[in-house]
Write a protein that binds this DNA or RNA. Structure first.
Lengths: 115, 115
DNA sequence: CTTCTGTATCGATAGTTGTCAATATAGACA
DNA sequence: TGTCTATATTGACAACTATCGATACAGAAG
């Protein structure tokens, strides 16, 4: 199996400014420990979704702050949400994490032979 | 092949605060369009490495700013560097990108069936 | 309509960050 | 030694962000 052909986009050629812009926004959403834990909590929650009340219980932060972080994750395209009666449920946008994963790692050995 | 068994760590269970801290630092290094392009430029450069002079030529930024971004990427564990005579060369730390990739995506379908 | 609960938005503030000009450092070469 | 080039560090500043308290909004239940 050839390796030089299956590099990730990031390694195959320099990112365009536009691509970098979009990607940076997604990574920025992941650049906060609280948001990473939120995303992981939602992703690993039963049924693949969690309401804000579930999430709030896991963090020692005020409710507006929780809401703010969820908004950042939603606007980055990582979470989606829906209101059901009194509660709002969040889930991971299908494919979003895998898309980022592929951009970074692509194939297994992408960068390991650079040196 | 079963899918529910090969989820990425992030999807399998809620991240610990410590893990989130470490991960967030790496993602923060990727959260700037300039740094993403720099990383990509180095990774895709001939021989897997580039000197600062190569990098500088691709950005409309002052030299101190270039140097600052490279430092952030180095301190996040994504780039390493070495001085050779007058020039300083940077390369991607082997495995760094793939590690991040695995945490995000794990297996192919990790999140796509959440809904 | 009123009240209660869950969630979002607003406004303010302390802390962080991207950028630059100025300066310092390291090595090559006279 | 001194000078030149490549890179790093320092200091300053504007822009951004994480957080909070106060307030607004949405739906359920009286």
């Amino acid at each position: 199996m050839q390796q030089s052909e299956c590099y990730s986009p990031l390694v195959r050629e320099p990112l365009s400014e536009d691509s970098a812009q979009v990607l940076a926004r997604m990574f920025k959403a992941l650049s906060d420990p609280v948001r990473l834990r939120m995303l992981s909590l939602v992703a690993s929650h039963e049924g693949g979704e969690a309401c804000v009340c579930d999430i709030s219980r896991s963090f020692d932060l005020t409710q507006p702050t929780i809401s703010h972080h969820l908004k950042v994750l939603r606007e980055a395209g990582l979470l989606d949400s829906e209101r059901r009666a009194t509660w709002v449920y969040y889930w991971v946008v299908p494919g979003a994490l895998q898309q980022l994963s592929e951009i970074l790692g692509g194939s297994a050995l992408s960068v390991s032979m650079a040196q």
